[in-house]
Nucleic acid binder design. Structure first.
Lengths: 354, 354
DNA sequence: CTGAAAGCGCTTACAG
DNA sequence: CTGAAAGCGCTTACAG
């Protein structure tokens, strides 16, 4: 029946008094400095544990000028699960540390940007994980000015030579997707991509073209379309594709979310997946396996990207070396039910069943 | 061409020196105390603005014992978009304040719980928004012990009389859903609910039963099934429902995520929505409108719930009164394409087309 | 190896 | 209305 104590927390001074050493020595023990006699250290550690000592971070922060916090900053609205997956990875990397994430995106509100800059200046931010930033990003520039460690996840444009980044192997992913569709016999393969300005779009598209060329399939420009990364525009663009005189038999799509729009456009035309059209996504979001039919897609390790970026930030904060400036994480293909071998044209040739 | 200054931030002492007043007076101006002469105040405010003064929060925090941070704590794994929507609401409420959210869920890791408790004790948490907690929750108990303001969003069980909460009108939502299906002519309406222990499940089910009784439709217990709130189990339970000798013609489902499993189970049996079965969800997650067919569902205002809860926490922190202890936010029905009028039994009666 | 002392930047009770 | 001074809890350079 230990009584819950709501008393104000222990201080180093109290521990010092209880142990008969100085506050300086207690501090040294807590900070694992080497210049403490083993016997003293042991005695202090025991008291610390027994009394349930708790470090006052505000005090340390005031003294040292840092805060035990890193910011999670998204270049756009926080309206997509995409960012959430990355955030979960950040959380995971921080699980065993005593660093916290702060969601600090300012969404381009001027007042909020001011506030954020203030926090920066006041030393309230030890580091940052930036999603969808490029070298012209407000955040990145401010962070550099203050020399605060940062890592960009999935850069949205060009980065400076000193900027660190973590992304997916987009080129390889685009190539793999296309090779898979080719292996199923498809030749007329459309690419319904996301935001054209995003480097990941460019890279995936380059992978797509490369795979086609390797297979001696001519690249038909009318088969490449762009949209933002959301459902609505994908739905529209797919409708455009379906208005073509000669339809593709497969589509490689910019992300899973867009695939929902693609499914819809197909359903509206009375076309079924994968019988009439193979659909291949990108991301492998949790819902991909539960779409009907279950979506074949390229896995983008968003959670892992968040985790890796966070670990890099942590190393930078601790002044430890970071191995690579540009990390790219693998993008395997997850085969489900939305892709099938190309059907022969109706009445063109009848293959024996089996 | 103002030179970006990476110098260490201004202090009150510098402002005081520049203005010819004392540090105490600067502090009073910043904290909007009344005991400052108008002329002095004006002079100091001018200097503050011109010099771009920035408050050092660590110092204030050390002095005052609070931190400008509230914790966002989820009782379960942070693996569902559900929590993300609430989090977005929290963010929104904080947009115009200088309070930050910290994602602090410990996921029942013992070591992390210790760390969290330390932060609590050290005054690093001014308040908390708890998702899916009940009165036995570790977080809630610790928070109460330290008298730190908190509000529970969507309580997972019973709460103490003094606990504040924000939830959706689950009973009304269940009733509304059922009435809608009844109005479409359905009489055999299944309820494929989520977690039976969750109060929201109980409330929705009560609403469902009430609506049936009001319409003089007997409640068939074999038509009520439970699962967790995720896709897999919903898929299984729906398969069970489809093994019944007499099938329902409509299902009211625990949440939108579960509906994906329901769609799948139906597709596997060759049944189409809404022709063979009407499906009605709960939540109105962003993807609901993009499921095929677009899901008719009860809108649960998760984002708004997060926002309201956060505003309550903010009021509590500021020692302002809070109007209501239990807030319930409305749950309108969003009609889309997954529900249709009940079809007459095959061969029972032929209606003229049109 | 140990500790006395200064100081991080603020707020507040108090004297004037 | 104004300000000198104490103190929040820590860390660090330095003397011993």
């Amino acid at each position: 029946m230990t009584q819950p104590s709501a008393k104000s927390p222990m201080t180093m001074a109290q521990i010092a008094a209880a142990t008969g050493v100085s506050v300086a020595t207690v501090s040294k023990v807590i900070n694992q400095r080497s210049d403490v006699a083993p016997a003293t250290r042991e005695r202090v550690e025991k008291a610390l544990a027994e009394q349930g000592y708790i470090l006052n971070r505000a005090a340390r922060s005031l003294r040292q000028g840092h805060s035990g916090q890193i910011d999670f900053l998204v270049g756009q609205e926080l309206n997509s699960y995409y960012a959430f997956e990355i955030l979960r990875g950040v959380e995971e990397a921080l699980l065993t540390t005593d660093v916290r994430v702060v969601l600090a995106s300012t969404h381009a509100h001027r007042e909020r940007e001011q506030q954020w800059r203030q926090r920066l200046s006041a030393g309230a931010i030890d580091g940052a994980v930036l999603v969808l930033a490029d070298k012209r990003s407000f955040y990145l520039q401010e962070l550099h000015r203050r020399s605060i460690p940062s890592v960009v996840v999935d850069p949205f444009g060009e980065l400076g030579p000193q900027d660190l980044s973590v992304s997916a192997t987009n080129w390889a992913g685009g190539k793999l997707a296309t090779e898979y569709l080719l292996s199923l016999g498809h030749r007329r393969i459309a690419a319904l991509m996301g935001e054209p300005a995003h480097p990941c779009t460019q890279d995936r598209l380059a992978g797509y073209r490369h795979a086609l060329q390797m297979a001696d399939v001519p690249v038909d420009p009318s088969l490449t379309r762009f949209a933002d990364f959301h459902v609505e525009q994908a739905h529209q663009e797919m409708a455009q594709l379906l208005a073509l005189p000669e339809l593709p038999t497969a589509v490689f799509v910019g992300n899973d979310e867009q695939c929902m729009g693609v499914y819809r456009a197909l359903a509206e035309r009375g076309l079924t997946v994968p019988h009439d059209m193979s659909v291949l996504g990108f991301d492998d979001m949790p819902y991909a396996q539960w779409m009907t039919p279950a979506l074949t897609t390229i896995h983008q390790p968003l959670l892992e990207m968040g985790r890796v970026a966070t670990k890099m930030v942590l190393r930078l904060i601790a002044d430890e070396p970071v191995e690579t400036v540009r990390v790219e994480l693998a993008t395997p293909l997850v085969a489900r039910l939305s892709c099938a071998p190309r059907r022969r044209r109706k009445g063109f040739r009848i293959l024996p069943a089996g």
